[in-house]
Computed example of a mutant assay.
Amino acid sequence: MPRVADHEERRLQVAAAVGRVIAAEGLNAVTVARTAAEAGISVGLVQHYFRSKDEMLLFAYGHVLERFEQRVTALIGSAEVVGTRIEHMVLDALAESMPLDTERRQDWRVALAFTGRAADDPRLGELKTAALNRTRAHIAQAVVNAKECGEVDAGRDEHVEAARIAAYAEGLTSHLYADPEGLPPAAALAALADHLAGVFTGVCTLRDREPGERPSAR
């Protein structure tokens, strides 16, 4: 009997193949047969782990969201160790979801494809809604922490600020993906940094990066 770890590893292998197909050819190109070929396994093996294409897509979308959140968690953990200003933690975390380079552009292409399908698939829609809720909650918590350390004025409402920041970042991301020449990565980052600077106006003692420094497009 296969180990649970082997079972999960195979499902992740299929999810990664789905992502590559979407990035190269779009969501409509995803079939069980095409995914199996991309993953280098048999159609029967894919069907052993996923009873239908919709089930396979649901898992793949969840994997995309989880992978992004894992990167952000690792980034924030490293930043906390060196005492990075909270404003810059938020900037770096949001930058992870922006198509600033080839790798992140591919990730966003996959996420965008699933977002479109989520409008007609309630299960995908639930994953999307949950991800948005978590994003706003994380930003709101960052604002709360920043109020406690002095980076954000105590009178600001963390939920209102979280909604504004999330919406602003998502808007920049859409423009950056659709028109990278009209809105280059550096300009998008500068705009987001300026928006955050209007919220995080105070001074915190925990700081290792000057206000003008921004995350690079890898």
Score class of each variant (00 low, 15 high):
H88R: 15
V64I: 10
L94V: 07
Q106S: 12
I76Q: 07
M89S: 12
V64M: 08
R71I: 01
L100H: 00
A95Q: 04
M98C: 05
G77C: 05
L91G: 07
M98W: 05
M98N: 01
I76C: 04
H88C: 06
T102W: 08
D92R: 15
D107T: 02
E103K: 03
S97I: 09
W108F: 15
D107V: 00
E103T: 08
V81R: 11
Q70C: 00
L65Y: 09
E69R: 11
R71H: 06
L65M: 11
P99I: 01
L94S: 06
E103S: 03
L75M: 14
E66H: 09
I86S: 03
M89V: 04
D101M: 05
R85T: 10
R105T: 13
L94C: 07
P99Y: 01
H88L: 14
A79Y: 03
A93Y: 09
S78M: 01
V81M: 04
V81Q: 13
G83H: 07
E66T: 12
G83N: 02
G83Q: 04
E87T: 11
L65G: 12
W108K: 09
H88N: 14
L100M: 03
L91H: 10
L75E: 14
V90T: 13
L91D: 09
V90K: 05
R85V: 12
I76R: 12
A74F: 00
T73Q: 12
V90C: 05
R71W: 01
I86P: 06
M89F: 02
Q106D: 13
V81T: 15
V64N: 07
V72E: 10
Q106E: 12
W108T: 10
P99H: 01
L94W: 04
R71Q: 10
A79G: 04
E66I: 00
S97T: 14
R104H: 05
T73K: 08
L91W: 11
V64S: 11
A95V: 07
G83L: 06
Q70T: 11
A74P: 00
V72P: 07
V90N: 05
M89E: 15
L91N: 11
E87H: 13
A74D: 11
E66V: 01
A95M: 09
R104D: 03
L65F: 07
I86F: 02
R67E: 14
